[in-house]
Amino acid sequence: MSLTNQVTAADILRISGVDASRCMQCGKCSGACPNYDEMDIPPHRFAIMVRQGRITELMESQAIYRCLSCFACSQRCPRNVEPAKLIEAVRLTVIRQKGQNHMKADSIPEKLDEKLPQQAIVSAMRKYSK
């Protein structure tokens, strides 16, 4: 199923509470990102693309599922932009749409192993599905 709802930069501002225009493109967030290699759109580009209203591209990116939610970007940002919140806001606009759950409940059993803590399942469901 494809994304049907149009999402604007204003929606991202409302959901994230983050004003992306405060970003000065210093790139410290990307420099700090421990998962940089996996991010098709690194945090600093995420911020500028939100500012430019290129939300659809962001919604189609892999970065929204690959962010570790470790807050290193938010912590080290000198402008208090909090890229992690922007990424989460875009992810929310995707998974809130019908049929866009990134992780389906019935796919989980095969991924389980004996030691896997509940927390991993609970948080993955929180992050990737509605």
């Binding site: 493109q25 210093c26 790139g27 410290k28 967030c29 990307s30 420099g31 700090a32 600093h44 080290r76």
Partner: peptide, 22 residues
């Protein structure tokens, strides 16, 4: 290099500098 360093790690005698080349 245009971009900021995100982390400097002490690895033995070296300082591992990780930054973004924008």
């Amino acid at each position: 290099i245009k971009g900021m360093v995100g982390k400097v790690s002490v690895e033995g005698k070296k300082l591992h500098v990780q930054g973004s080349d924008l």
